[in-house]
Amino acid sequence: MKRTLQIVDLHAGRDGKEILKGINLVINQGEVHAIMGPNGSGKSTLSNVVMGNPKYQIMSGDVRLDGESIAKLAPNKRAHRGLFLGMQYPVEVSGVKLGSFMKAAYNQVHGPDALDVAGFMELVEENTKLLNMDSAFAGRYVNEGFSGGEKKKAEILQMLVLKPAFAILDETDSGLDIDALKTVARAIDAYRGPDVGILLITHYQRLLRYIKPDFVHVLMGGKIVLTGGGDLAEKLEELGYGWLKDEKYAGAT
């Protein structure tokens, strides 16, 4: 049976301020969705709320995985159920090596017996190569001293290693130069498959040139104001977001 990630009439925000004003979205395994929108439209709020960042609060509505609410689960429990968030601003954790961090996470998500140390190292090695990263990378402290591009690659590396059923990638394209963007896009595209649902959150269309989404949603003022196919991204690239505001969706914000 196909698994689903469902966002139901979600109102949520931070410090008592409502940012998301009723989001509805269903992502099935095997689908790639893209959420686009101008700055401040609530894109990062959405990703944080779905992953359960305690700094954000749900005012009403629900987040469901396979029909079951996960809105009250701790972030690690959501990860155990197959959710992954590639963050816009990955956090530095001094003194903790990326490799051992991923192993600790892997053991939690897939159980300690799923893979032995050698197998795990192989898995890391293989994906490090795929992302054109130095193999010494796993020996560095989590995100500490990483360049913007390295941080984003390290997020994708974690996704590839942890193998989530649903991956939300928040502004993964920002901070990447063109070569790194291609590499990362190729890796995401390779991860795409019948057992994976992906939600790409992005301001620009450039990532979507390499990963063709099945659906594109436009988020403005905390609401999804338009949903379309892959070609909608191109239209947005050409026209920007202004026409949505000016014309028929003026009331949406």
């Binding site: 992953m51 968030l85 961090f101």
Partner: peptide
């Protein structure tokens, strides 16, 4: 949050 979001207990 970063670490727990990857599946690690708090």
């Amino acid at each position: 949050f970063y670490m727990t979001s990857r599946g690690i207990e708090e």
